[in-house]
């Protein structure tokens, strides 16, 4: 599922800014990064490369959203 997990986050927020497609947000309660919009991950790895504590794991597969007939 693209961006897969965040472990050991220190909440610096670099990944939030770095993600071109706005997938990651800081959780208001814990202050840590959460994968808020995984479907929009373009698997470019910028967040992982910029993370100071190497907390982000990304897999090459992507779940395809289900097709429905109403918008």
């Amino acid at each position: 599922m693209a961006i897969n997990s965040i472990n050991g986050c220190i909440g610096c927020g670099t990944c939030v800014k770095t993600c071109p497609t706005d997938v990651i947000r800081l959780d208001k309660r814990t202050g840590k990064a959460v994968i808020a919009y995984p479907a929009d991950c373009q698997i470019c790895h910028l967040c992982r490369m910029y993370c100071p504590v190497d907390a982000i794991t990304i897999t090459p597969d992507k779940s395809i959203p289900v097709i429905v007939s109403w918008g």
Partner: peptide
């Protein structure tokens, strides 16, 4: 294979 994974 993994067509969406542009990094890979």
């Amino acid at each position: 294979k993994n067509a969406a994974a542009c990094f890979d």
